[in-house]
Design a protein around this nucleic acid. Structure first.
Ligand code: ATP
Ligand code: MG
Length: 362
DNA sequence: GGGGGAAGGATTCC
DNA sequence: TCATGGAATCCTTCCCCC
């Protein structure tokens, strides 16, 4: 029995922007930006993604639209149509499933495929990769990048190595050669803060990281440190497994400008709550915990939450609780509010009996 | 001492 | 100067209770 695995990580190229370009051929080769936020037309919002042409100007996800415009006055800004991208995503995921024995969707535009059983040699890897890319291009008119490795993390890092439309295959005997020179930030889980913390200790490349012991890294970074260590030594071994049920659901909206108009804020809270109820009822969920999220004009963020004794999907219950939470915060609060959100968690399926748990209580 | 849960914050990801 | 929106996971603190 051979335990060596072959994992693919498939990641669509500039996904939202590519869909918009596919829909409108005038946009081909143009610097296209998909924007999100309170008023994309008036540059109030940020870049959700940028086409590769736009990236030449330093435009990338997360930067304010006004900055993107200043970098390139020719950009075409499209407001995001997430539900449409979701449909496209579903089509792509169906294609990917066909080519794998185990499948794990990670996000709207990424998935892991365990294809170990379908691979005998290097050529069969290339054949399978090309087949997948072909079918996505033919059926959906979109390109993707694929990383191949002996585990999920290496596959993922590999898929980002050559983009767009790249293929990167990392054999087990090339792991060190591949990982060593990469910056620590390449590792999934190492973000801005962790990068800085490591830099302070002179750790910038993955090869620096593996000089530390696993326990060093755990005492430095907690549980995350252990995961980061395993990835860095190339021995991360988590399974490709289907996505579980969602754990929370919520909506957040920013105001065009910060406000202390309580009425306006409460209206927004009700609107967001209504959307949540609509969605959980459609998806047949119930919740037990309700939270509000507030970002003030100084950009500090607070969350307030409370939990019920029983699950519910009732609008009135949600409204009462989140408005109460808000009133408590705004009792003696001077700062204006930039952004307000409502979220529910502790979810269960409404109809389906909770067989597994209820068995224990017979 | 610690299990177990609630709350709140921080960080990361896409 | 600008600074989204959806979600997951982890950490710390507090509390109830054995
Ligand atoms: N910071 C962000 N805010 C909102 N949406 C984001 C953000 N980052 C990514 N997304 C959305 O998720 C999609 C997939 O993200 P991903 O990181 O794979 O980038 P991408 O646009 O597909 O480009 P790439 O070719 O680098 O993969 C994007 O198209 C995008 O719009
Ligand atoms: Mg992508």
């Amino acid at each position: 029995m051979n335990s060596k695995r072959v994992i693919f990580h498939v990641d669509m190229d500039a996904f939202y922007a590519s869909v918009e370009i596919r829909e409108n051929s005038d946009l081909e080769n143009k610097p296209v930006v998909v924007g999100v936020g309170p008023n994309v037309e008036k540059f109030k919002g940020v870049v959700s993604t940028a086409s590769y042409k736009a990236r030449e100007y330093g435009i990338k996800a997360g930067i304010p639209l006004i900055q993107a415009y200043n970098k390139c006055k020719d950009i075409v800004i499209m407001p995001a149509r997430i539900s449409y991208y979701k449909e496209v995503s579903n089509n792509i995921m169906e294609i990917l499933k066909k080519y794998s024995d185990k499948f794990q969707q990670i996000s709207i535009d990424e998935a892991y495929l365990d294809v170990s059983k379908r691979i005998e040699d290097y050529d069969s890897i290339e054949n399978l990769v090309n087949k997948i890319k072909e079918e996505i291009l033919n059926n959906e008119g979109l390109t993707c990048s694929i990383g191949v490795g002996p585990n999920k993390s290496i596959a993922k890092i590999a898929s980002g190595f050559k983009k767009p439309s790249g293929v990167t295959i990392i054999n087990s005997d090339k792991i060190r050669k591949f990982l060593d020179p990469l910056p620590v930030k390449t590792i999934p889980g190492v973000g801005k803060k962790t990068k800085k913390l490591l830099a302070k200790r002179g750790i910038e490349k993955i090869k620096d990281l593996i000089k530390l012991s696993k326990s060093d890294l755990i005492s430095l970074l907690g549980k995350a440190g252990g995961k980061i260590y395993d990835i860095a030594i190339g021995r991360e071994s988590s399974e490709v497994k289907p996505r579980g049920p969602r754990k929370s659901l919520g909506f957040i909206r920013s105001f065009e400008s910060s406000t202390d108009d309580i009425k306006k804020i409460k209206e927004k809270i009700k609107e967001l709550s209504k959307s949540i109820i609509k969605k959980i009822q459609a998806d047949d969920f119930q919740f037990r915990t309700m939270s509000i999220i507030i970002r003030f004009d100084d950009f500090s963020v607070i969350t307030r939450s409370n939990s019920l004794t029983h699950h519910t999907n009732d609008y009135k219950v949600l409204i009462k609780n989140v408005i109460d939470l808000f009133d408590k915060v705004y009792d003696n609060e001077k700062r204006k509010i930039k952004r307000i959100g409502v979220r529910v968690s502790n979810l269960t399926k409404s109809s389906l009996k909770q067989e597994i748990l209820s068995k224990y209580f017979e």
